[in-house]
Amino acid sequence: QLRQQIAVANATELLQKLSDKCFKKCVTSPGTSLGNSEQKCIAMCVDRYLDSWNVVSKSYVQRLQKERQ
């Protein structure tokens, strides 16, 4: 249950961070609905953020392993 709470907390933090960052990057002047290009930008923003997360994780783990040797 604790493990689940941490997973939920993580997903919540990810969702908050993504909303914040992708809204700031993609919706420069908010109108009466999300335009097509804004929607595409948001989708790409999420995908690239997850890519970045993966690159960061890989680099971070490699570095920790190098330091342990």
Binding site: S19, P30, S33, V46
Partner: peptide, 24 residues
């Protein structure tokens, strides 16, 4: 009106991101 649109669009954005994350 910028603020009230901002609230609506921010909530749209969160929703769209939630959907995308579930797909992923």
């Amino acid at each position: 009106s910028c603020i009230s649109n901002c609230v609506e669009r921010f909530m749209d954005t969160t929703k769209a991101i939630g959907v995308r994350l579930q797909q992923k």
